[in-house]
Simulated scan of single mutants.
Amino acid sequence: MKKITINADCEVVILESRHAQELFQLIDHSRMNLGEWLSFPTKTNSVEDSRMFIEKSLKRFSENNGYWACIWYKGNLAGSIGYLYVDLKAKKTEIGYWLGENYVGEGLVTLACTEFIRHAFTELGLRKVEINAAVRNTKSRAIPERLGFKQEGVIRNYEYINGVYHDRVVYGLLEEEWSKF
């Protein structure tokens, strides 16, 4: 998957080095919002940090072990979505996502996740997709719940971000459940 046109306003495109400047600017602009739930904003302090992340993502893509893509909305970089890994032996993956604060509430992640789920099951031949979110991050948790994922458990004290321990909810969707959805 290099590019998916979701609708007239939204598309998902694999991250490339040419996106580093826009990616950094979006992260920098949304640093406080993103940093409440995610650790990467504290590690992204320059365009070069974004470029290095993109290069690592492209390496993982070439190794068939996941990748990140950008979510474009009305011609602007709105956020990112990716397969955190692809386990071909267990036939599963985990989807991660985030949006810049100006793009929350537009339904973009739901649309992008739907395409990533379809791609995982129909093109990658996987059997399971997982999405994890902080227990208190109700907006992020709404995505898998809306898409028919089942809550599989809670991992206590999963992450320590900005002096706070966050429990993490694990959601899973099996291929046969998606077919019925």
Rank of each mutant, 00 (worst) to 15 (best):
D49G: 11
M32G: 10
V154C: 15
R18H: 13
D167M: 12
V86K: 00
E36M: 07
F61K: 10
A112K: 02
I4F: 14
N76P: 00
K74M: 08
I143A: 04
E101L: 04
I81Q: 02
Y103F: 15
F181Q: 15
E123R: 13
F24K: 05
E94Y: 00
R156I: 03
G107S: 12
N65W: 07
Y103D: 05
S17A: 14
I54H: 06
K56F: 07
E123C: 11
L126T: 06
E101D: 15
N65I: 09
R127C: 12
T122A: 09
W98C: 05
G96H: 03
E177F: 08
F24M: 08
V164R: 10
K2W: 10
I4N: 00
I71M: 01
F116N: 05
Y158W: 13
K92W: 05
W178M: 11
I14R: 08
I14F: 08
T122N: 14
Y85T: 08
A90N: 15
H166I: 01
Y165I: 03
E106M: 09
S17T: 12
L23C: 10
H19V: 06
E94H: 03
T110I: 11
E130P: 00
K128H: 11
G66Y: 05
S30E: 04
N137L: 06
C10G: 04
S80M: 09
H119F: 15
S179D: 09
W72I: 10
R146M: 12
K56W: 04
L58D: 01
L88C: 07
D9I: 00
T110A: 09
T44L: 06
G96A: 14
R141Y: 05
K139P: 02
W98H: 07
G148K: 08
L38H: 05
L26A: 08
F40S: 06
E11V: 03
R141L: 05
L124S: 10
D9P: 00
G107T: 08
F24G: 02
A120M: 12
R51F: 07
I27P: 03
K56S: 14
W72D: 00
S17I: 05
V154G: 08
V129S: 04
R156H: 14
V109R: 00
D87L: 13
E152K: 10
R127Y: 13
V135T: 10
S80C: 13
G35D: 06
E16N: 13
E36A: 03
Y97K: 00
H29R: 15
C113K: 02
V170Q: 12
V86I: 15
